[in-house]
Design a protein around this nucleic acid. Structure first.
Lengths: 192, 192
DNA sequence: CCTATTCGCATACCGGTGGTACGTCAAGGA
DNA sequence: TCCTTGACGTACCACCGGTATGCGAATAGG
């Protein structure tokens, strides 16, 4: 791997970084390609060499953000021993990690609108949905959760968590205690 | 009120109707003003006379859709006597009503992205959030739900319901039973 | 080493978009 | 009847995402 592939990777990373910053600050629709490539220090030619267009660059940004949030969730969950506490810690960390500036907007507002809901759901399942399903299955195995179909439950819980994260991220005075309290109340109700 | 105001109202209605149809079918971003005004049988001058732009027309469409869904939910809830069953029936009807073609897309995908999350949340609270908070309060009063802050719980439940509705609306083979089962499981867990 | 070729990226350009300025003409008050 | 108002049509513009093409350096082959 020579100097060529190295430079290519750095250009791609510059584009993704610029996209993340601008999409987070202004939203997808309000960011023009000219601003994007100017921030990245390249031109439109570079963008269209690496991506099929604006939407595909956004998808790369979304995948990065999702993977970071998922990693934080996984770390928080692994810090607990009991499967049920792993589930709780993961959900709580999701709220905290999603509150980083612009993260929620990219992941939860523009994501579905730009990529379409079904595509977005596939990416979200791949990143964090998998973790949630796994945690629920572990809870069932540990007899902390009544047996039953976990996928629908995971999706619905994911919706609740997403709304909670948006509420925290967009609020002027976020109240993690109250929002987490509502989530925890739902989880407690589900527990055995 | 003469022929003048009457024609004005019919023009506005034509624009909103056209917007609803096109936004539902293609999504907000993919609909051009030219297609909008052609479908409505008017010109851009008429559109900009009635609205400040494309986004404000969308807001009018969103308000209409939300009011229809909220009305259906209210009817379903009023058919029950017990406050807890009113809550359940309202939630279930929300899933059914939101599954109408394009409704979920307008309400839940494009809505937050076009208007911004906080504006969308304000409209959603005004339309259906109010109902949910009221139902929860009634459940507390009837001792079917433990006392506690209901607003955070309502928001989080709303998120769960929205995700469930999207899942049903966008699925090729929607499974109302499984999705409603997950919601009902959460509600049952909350109940006393 | 020298050459041919590829490839990462820049430049110039295009159709179409949302938005605006202004013109028009019928309805309603006096 | 006249004039004002307002609902709407028309013509136009800046700008956007996207494409076609050009160029120069890095790499592979001999």
């Amino acid at each position: 791997m020579g100097v060529r592939a190295d430079q290519k990777e750095r250009t791609r990373e510059a584009l993704v970084t610029a996209g993340r910053q601008l999409f987070a600050e202004h939203g997808y629709a309000a960011v023009g390609l000219s601003a994007l490539v100017a921030t990245a220090g390249v031109t439109k030619g570079a963008l269209y060499h690496h991506f099929d267009g604006k939407a595909e660059l956004f998808e790369a940004v979304l995948a990065l953000v999702q993977s970071e949030v998922a990693a934080a969730v996984e770390v928080a969950a692994d810090a607990e021993d009991d499967p049920w506490e792993q589930l709780r810690a993961g959900c709580r960390e999701f709220l905290v990690a999603s509150t980083a500036p612009g993260t929620a907007r990219i992941m939860l507002v523009d994501g579905p609108a730009v990529l379409g809901w079904s595509r977005w759901r596939a990416l979200d399942d791949d990143a964090s949905g998998r973790l949630l399903v796994g945690a629920l299955r572990a809870a069932v195995a540990a007899d902390r959760l009544a047996p039953g179909p976990v996928e629908p439950l995971a999706h619905v819980l994911s919706g609740a968590l997403n709304e909670a994260a948006l509420r925290l991220a967009e609020s002027d005075s976020p109240d993690l205690g109250a929002t987490w309290g509502a989530i925890d109340r739902i989880l407690t109700g589900l527990a055995r």
